[in-house]
Design a binder for these strands. Sequence first.
DNA 1: TATTTATCCTTCCGGTTTAGTAGGAAAAAA
DNA 2: TTTTTTCCTACTAAACCGGAAGGATAAATA
Lengths: 134, 134
Amino acid sequence: MKLSTRGRYGTRLMLQLAANYGKKTPLPLTEIARREEISVKYLEQLIIPLKAAGLIESRRGAHGGYVLAKDPDEITIGQVLQILEGNISPVPCVKDPSFCIKYETCNTRKLWETMDKAISKSVCEMTLKEALSA
Amino acid sequence: MKLSTRGRYGTRLMLQLAANYGKKTPLPLTEIARREEISVKYLEQLIIPLKAAGLIESRRGAHGGYVLAKDPDEITIGQVLQILEGNISPVPCVKDPSFCIKYETCNTRKLWETMDKAISKSVCEMTLKEALSA
DNA sequence: TATTTATCCTTCCGGTTTAGTAGGAAAAAA
DNA sequence: TTTTTTCCTACTAAACCGGAAGGATAAATA
């Protein structure tokens, strides 16, 4: 039960943008790629859904780059993971009952719900700002 | 970040054995397969590591089957998942620092540790007995 | 205006993991 | 000796993961 590189790299990407928040110049992917040792090409892929979700704004051309669209304390790690990994619940049925035909009689459902809540809580209560200062 | 069928089916398997705990006859996989609608062949595969870990004992031949080797309140969901899924931490580096070359400078490590603890706690504090009665 | 620096857009691909299936051997009970 | 069951070793189709490739478009600068 692992996060993929999308979630992990994407979080690092977002923390770099959070650290740059408030500065005059946007942060280009080339710079993030250098700091985090991740290829620009892969970062380009990860940033698309983050931008589509309205968490990021971009400026094209020379001296361009990306900036957070919101304050770092208004974005949670949970949001970022949700966008990049999809639903982060440990089992599909918790968020989508139609997934399982045995939904009513399943002896493990409440168990997964307990687990799901623990995960959601840990990650939705933490903002980029808090993650940075930790 | 999903559990695979190994972890999910294996937990259902263990809960069936927990429900049978104390009864005179062991529970055969054919019966578990019928109740849970999982093929015997796949259950056979899942039960191997559980037995190897000492959570289960087997009896061969007619009227054979499996029984828990311990009381249901001495086995946690966390143990079961650990055996079937391997390490359930959301990122590899939390349990194995050598995995990551950026370990010292990583801005996300503490974040994953927080998440890891929340998951471990939720799942290691719940025993089969509790899961059954929930 | 030409060049450089960026984002933006579409496509492809090899490797690994997942979720099983297949076929039988060995043991124990009836 | 037949049936029921565990035990053991392979095999595989499909999905997913982790990127790389190649260029188009836009903005700043010289």
